[in-house]
């Protein structure tokens, strides 16, 4: 069992929606990172969640920056701190829009340059802060305020894009598995260079689920295989324990879709496409894990 510190790094004053997955994830991220950390936050839900001046939620410095700018800001910060001989963790905490869409150029640049920082994307699969518009990370079939009949194209495969930069450490996680998040952040911060963690963070108002179902829906995502937990340390690709178990006998993705109001317009045909996409992806991941094991 992972020993997670009891000390809370977030004060009890967040202005989140009830049941926010991104805040749950951040709680464990900061426990893993500790006090010698600076958070860089571009425009996203977490710009608002942190409170209104002069109050703040976090017990580490938080630097807010423009939507497209998180990875570049972290680059400058990390270079300056390292030039001064300081080891302070620089962690970006950005939403999916700020990562997969408007911020992807800066992210790609920072990853290519090999900046020493950890980029964490919490993915609630839409522009949550502006009221749930579709983003590149919105999944096929999901209703948003700009896809009122459901999104007609697939979710952008952000992880493959990031993977193309050959990072020393990359992982996926989900806010429903705090120990997994904690361990992955710990490991990431022990490795120099650019690190990336992509966390699925259910959003009760956006996904149209009851506030108390955040953890349950996240687990359903993993159990259905629509979200797979894995990590890649240099070339070593490993499927994480919860997904290893789930992949043996994935729950049909239809159950995950049915549990959320945002998928209510998904017809059988689209549901079949989504299931086929999941099956294809699971095969790909199983193959990659097997190949990685072989080369060990």
């Amino acid at each position: 069992m992972t020993e997670i510190p009891k000390e809370e790094m977030l004060l009890k004053c967040p202005s989140t929606c009830a049941g926010c997955g991104s805040l749950l994830a951040l709680r464990y991220i900061l426990k893993a990172a500790g006090k010698d950390t600076v958070l860089v936050i571009p425009a996203c839900c977490n710009s608002v969640i942190q409170g209104v001046y002069p109050y703040m939620l976090h017990t580490v410095p938080v630097y807010n920056i423009a939507f497209a700018a998180a990875a570049a800001c972290a680059s400058g910060m990390s270079e300056a701190l390292r030039a001064k001989g300081e080891k302070t963790n620089v962690i970006v905490y950005a939403g999916d829009g700020g990562t997969a869409d408007i911020g992807i150029q800066a992210l790609s640049g920072a990853l290519e340059r090999g900046e020493d920082f950890l980029y964490i994307c919490y993915d609630n699969e839409a522009y949550g802060n502006t009221g749930m518009q579709r983003s590149g990370a919105t999944p096929l079939g999901a209703i948003t305020t700009t896809t009122p009949n459901g999104k007609t194209v697939n979710k952008k495969d952000l992880d493959r894009i990031v993977e193309a930069h050959n990072l020393p450490y990359q992982a996926t996680a989900c806010s429903s598995y705090p120990a997994d998040i904690y361990n992955k952040v710990k490991k990431a911060l022990s490795i120099p260079g650019p690190k990336f963690i992509h966390i699925l963070a259910p959003c009760p108002p956006g996904w149209r689920i009851p506030s108390e179902k955040t953890v349950e829906i996240g687990k359903m995502a993993v159990k259905s295989g629509i979200w797979v937990l894995w990590e890649k340390e240099y070339d070593k690709f490993t499927v994480s324990a919860p997904s290893r178990a789930a992949m043996k006998r994935p729950v049909p993705v239809g159950e995950y879709l049915k549990a959320q109001g945002r998928f209510r317009k998904v017809d059988e045909k689209t549901a079949a496409v989504i299931q086929a996409n999941v099956d294809k992806n699971l095969k790909k991941i199983a193959l990659e894990a097997a190949q990685s094991e072989e080369t060990e």
Binding site: Y63, S75, Q105, G109
Partner: peptide
């Protein structure tokens, strides 16, 4: 950096330290 937007942003990130 990969753009001027990032040039100014990286300067901001560095300067605040």
């Amino acid at each position: 950096v990969e753009s001027e937007h990032s040039a100014m942003t990286a300067c901001i990130g560095a300067s605040i330290t």
